[in-house]
Design a protein around this nucleic acid. Structure first.
Length: 620
RNA sequence: GCCUACGUAGCUCAGUCGGUAGAGCACGUCUUUGGUAAAGACGAGGUCACGGGUUCAAGUCCCGUCGUAGGCUCCA
């Protein structure tokens, strides 16, 4: 299925662990029956193509489908478009719309179609596909034997190869409710070996209010952009000097990471995991055995030479954990073993795909590998999923969709193991009443998996957790345990990551909270604001008491006036501002102002401490 | 990696026709000691991403490199 490819559920041999694609739903073609905007957006794509061809009569058109929020059309034009061109194209589109041209449908034979589009090479290629029963994306539909029905739609002077449906006439389009958004390069049929076309993206809505609402949402998303907030709140940076895709965690960002890691570290201990550490590099032979040098080399950095021996920076942690497993002969009574590590891995990503914290070249996974007996699989999967939900919910992420990927045509391992594992995954998902989608045949060749995507405060989906079987590595490394029968058996192995990578997880948290972290995560929980220097000594006393209570506080002893200090703390999204003037000093109190702007007035210091400690403990 | 755009002070940005660099914030000093989102004055701060080229003269025009953004592709 086309959408499954775009959905980031393509087959992947080794565990992506949170470093898979973001879910770019914006780019997914939509189905006519699902989407009330389909006709509008599809029609606008045609109108845009007409407008572009008016400017470039020699231009070649490719395809132009509706997508979520809008539409695009791909062109092959004699020159590069500039953002200035969009204005003229929009103006021409409005003129076409005002003509109230009907969209006229007709069925043509393949021969007529070839004649009609004889100057349009991309259309001719599509027609050949259609004549052989493919759809416009080149996907074959076996039920369409003898060829797909070929049809066209025409409005005004522009006739396009199209199966529709469309609006009745252009007058049904609100000329104030669409906007051309951007120009991008796009390969013909999505293949980088094909010519690169120019794609124009547009957004379209039923009326101007809807358009404005959409544009407003884009602005809101911009304000939450973790790259922007990372700078404004001094959380992290990426230095050209260090290199792209490599994250520098500043003290405030690192504080949040440390809190998150500490929380999850304790949670893992409670859940029966054992912590391990492993090095960042390993000999080439290890990666040959694991198969990474066969299957994952594209993502690995060049080896370094150490005394004539090649070593690779690790792209995954699994081979190291396997080595730890192999240091003993394991009894069936020793299983399951659950090895957890915040493991930092390095993967080559093409420069064009790097993005803030969510797509990087070096990152730390909250990784774990579970080695267990076949009869323990069911319970281990259930526990892993339960645990994943527990951890994510602790961070205020409460909405999830699960994706279950099953056995592909090419696979390793025994079918009965696959069936058992897949059934275990399915039961686990159903037991938690999670909404889920099955991707039949979408699993990796080495095992089925569940991916969890979380929905953030703006409803956007992010892939973080993954729980994945591996029938490959135990085989390659010859893993064994001694069973009750005194014979060696092969253990099951499960990879899992909950937060995914700390980098991406942090990025999602920043955007989810728009930088206003809940008290337990806030790097600075309270700013003490003395009104005059006369209160500095008292402020220091207060600070020490708050620190003793386990709170993270700063004194703003700058020369600014109180208003300026409040403003600064507010912009830094500090949860509490504690104003200290003569009155508070006198009373042994602090005047509490919250980040929301609410003024709680003066309260005894002990009362504030109790309140804050309670808030931290409940992770409210 | 590919397409397009962009790269000027720590940050956000201006810089016209090619004529040797500007603002606000932040920073420093001084004055001001204040009651819930910015007190005032002065000052310091630049290899205009980097490297070439054109020109009497380049932040500005051209080429290359690096980086960033939005896409594409990739995420075996």
């Amino acid at each position: 299925m086309l959408t499954s490819k775009l959905g980031g559920t393509t087959k992947q041999p080794f565990v992506p662990r949170g470093q898979g694609a973001l879910f770019l739903e914006f780019l997914m073609p939509v189905n006519p029956q699902d989407d009330p905007y389909y006709r509008l957006r599809h029609s606008l794509a045609h109108v845009m193509a007409q407008a572009v061809l008016e400017i470039f009569p020699e231009g070649k058109v490719a395809i132009g489908p509706p997508i979520e929020h809008g539409f695009y059309y791909d062109f092959d034009l004699p020159r590069s478009l500039t953002p200035d061109d969009l204005g003229e194209i929009e103006a021409r589109m409005r003129r076409i719309i005002s003509g109230n041209y009907p969209f006229i449908y007709r069925v043509v034979s393949a021969e007529e179609a070839r004649q009609l589009f004889k100057d349009q090479p991309y259309k001719l290629e599509l027609i050949e596909g259609l004549a052989q029963g493919a759809d416009e994306y080149g996907e074959l539909h076996p039920d369409a034997n003898g060829g797909t029905v070929i049809s066209t739609y025409r409005q005004d002077t522009f006739e396009d190869l199209c199966r529709g449906p469309h609006l009745e006439h252009t007058g049904q389009i609100d000329p104030e409710a669409f906007k051309l958004m951007s120009i991008a390069g796009a390969y013909w049929r999505g293949n980088e070996k094909n010519p690169q076309l120019q794609r124009i993206y547009g957004t379209a809505w039923n009326n101007k209010a809807e358009l404005d609402q959409y544009l407003w949402r884009l602005e809101e998303a911009k304000k939450r952009d973790h790259r922007r907030l990372g700078k404004e709140l001094d959380l992290f940076s990426i230095s050209d000097e260090v290199g792209p895709g490599l994250i520098l965690w500043h003290p405030k960002g690192a504080m949040i990471r440390v809190i998150a890691e500490d929380f999850a570290r304790q949670a893992h201990l409670n859940a029966g995991y054992e912590w391990v550490f492993s090095p960042h590099i390993g000999r080439a032979h290890l990666w040959e055995t694991s198969g990474h040098l066969d299957f994952y080399k594209e993502n690995m950095y060049s080896p370094m030479d150490i005394e004539g021996e090649a070593y690779y920076a690790k792209p995954m942690n699994c081979p190291f954990h396997i080595q730890i497993y192999k240091t003993h002969l394991r009894s069936y009574r020793d299983l399951p073993r659950r090895y957890a590590e915040y493991g930092t891995v390095y993967r080559y990503e093409m420069s064009g795909v790097l993005h803030g914290l969510t797509r990087v070249r070096g990152f730390t996974q909250d990784d774990a590998h579970i080695f267990c007996r076949p009869d323990q699989v069911e319970e281990e999967i259930g526990r892993a999923l339960e645990f994943s939900l527990y951890v994510l919910r602790a961070f205020g992420l409460n909405e999830f969709t699960a994706y279950l990927s099953t056995r592909p045509e090419k696979y390793v391992g025994r079918p009965e193991d696959w069936d058992r594992a897949t059934a275990a995954l399915e039961r686990a998902v159903e037991a938690h009443a999670l909404p889920y989608q099955r991707d039949e045949g979408g699993g990796a060749f080495y095992g089925p998996k569940i991916d969890l995507k979380v929905h953030d405060a703006l409803g956007r989906e992010w892939q973080l957790s993954t729980i994945q079987f591996d029938f490959n590595l135990p085989e390659r490394f010859g893993l064994e345990y001694i069973g009750e029968d005194g014979q060696p058996h092969r253990p099951y192995m499960v990879h899992r990551a909950l937060m995914g990578s700390m980098e991406r997880f942090f990025g999602v948290l920043i955007e989810h909270f728009a930088g206003a972290f809940p008290l337990w995560l806030a790097p600075v929980q309270a700013t003490l604001i003395p009104i005059t220097d006369k209160q500095l000594a008292y402020a220091e006393q207060v600070r020490q008491q708050l620190v003793a209570a386990g709170l993270r506080v700063e004194i703003d002893d700058s020369r600014d006036r109180m208003q300026g200090k409040i403003r600064r703390a507010q912009l830094q999204k500090v949860p509490y501002m504690l104003i200290i003037g003569a009155k508070e000093q006198e009373a042994g109190a602090v005047a509490v102002r919250m980040r929301s702007g609410e003024d709680l007035g003066p309260m005894p210091l002990a009362e504030f401490v109790a309140r804050a400690v309670q808030e931290v403990q409940t992770r409210a």
